[in-house]
Design a protein around this nucleic acid. Structure first.
Lengths: 198, 198
DNA sequence: TGACTATATGACAATCTGTCATATATCTTT
DNA sequence: AAAGATATATGACAGATTGTCATATAGTCA
């Protein structure tokens, strides 16, 4: 559990701890991460760590939440830019996510982040995140084949799966961005126009 | 790395180690798993463990591969039963996977397995698994809107994402099977008929 | 049989974890 | 402003865990 004490911390100290944890996740695969490394870099005593978190995993969850907040913000922007067109926004999102996860941060961070997301919660961005209603409201539904509110929910989930898993696999298998993008676009088109012949 | 020594082991000893590892993954979340527990249950000395694997993670990868082999076999069967109809086979697969992951094995195994899959490789079942060509050959493509071989590949990936992620999230969020199934069917229908109005 | 290779074994140093008693800061009340 | 109450900080430490290594054993081949 992430303890209240951590949330009460002054912004800069909290940021220093998150940053050290992010570096640790970049340095080694998840299961080789050490509390010792984080507290050393953050310059806090070991005891303090346990004042803020129950376990190593919790600090990583904190890192994840931090990243996801930024992602959600991006998606809202893309949705606005494309006047509520979900397909267009998803394509922009794929592009931005891919770049963020490949260029911005080398090392093990990418796999680890997906990994923590699997333990901790929903897809990188998804209906469970706070602030999701905002996204919901931005989507133009007139040209979509929806039977109810739940259908939009399911459709969104499908997009988020697809973005996340395509990126994850492409990085894992060392495919080029171009290949990953083509695969993703094909899938988006199936969802848009249907895979079954008329 | 899973070492050759492990693969050279007699069937029953290998099975005993895999079984102990599976139990450990059921007992605790991934990051609390201990080599000590596994060697104790399997009745092998600690040194032997390192003769077979480089790290704890590797033995879990071995467990994962074992499970996935069985899953692939199921999918081939479903595809045969439904005369190559991918949509029908996917629905059967969802059902079978869901039951396997929820009823068959309580505890932490489910999340851990997804988790290892994220580090280790593709979706639970996917184009990267050995024996995948068999699946490919079974699919009836005449009624599908495919522009090439790669399109079928992308479509399959999409199905596997969707099955896996729906199950994972439904278990994580403690949704009922019925709800998860409904969401999944909606998504499958988007893929089949398209989400965009004509 | 002897040489060579593969596997088995458990003790051990180095490292890591989570706890705890104590110190310090901050806030509250009178 | 003093005293009491609450929140946070600190680092030493016992117990647990890791990966290595020297040595023992088994198997193979000539």
């Amino acid at each position: 559990m992430i303890k209240q004490t951590f949330l009460n911390l002054p912004e800069d100290k909290r940021e220093k701890i998150l940053s050290a944890a992010r570096n640790e996740l970049t340095r080694v695969p998840f299961y080789d991460a050490r509390i010792a490394t984080i507290v050393r870099e953050a310059g806090i005593p070991r005891g303090s760590f346990y004042q803020y978190f129950d376990s190593l995993n919790d600090v990583f969850v904190a890192v994840l939440r931090d990243i996801e907040k930024k992602k959600l913000k991006n998606f809202v922007q893309f949705l606005t830019e494309s006047q509520g067109d979900l397909f267009e926004a998803a394509i922009k999102m794929f592009d931005s996510e891919f770049d963020y996860l490949t260029n911005n941060k080398p090392g093990h961070l990418i796999q680890n982040i997906f990994n923590i997301a699997k333990i901790d919660g929903g897809p990188s961005i998804g209906p469970n995140n706070p602030g999701f209603e905002e996204v919901f409201a931005l989507i133009k539904t007139e040209s979509l084949n929806l039977k109810g509110h739940n259908d939009l929910f399911s459709l969104l989930m499908l997009f988020f799966f697809t973005i996340g898993e395509n990126i994850r696999l492409s990085i894992l298998n060392e495919h080029s961005k171009h290949d990953a993008q083509r695969c993703f676009l094909t899938q988006i088109n199936f969802v848009k126009y249907g895979a079954k012949k008329k």
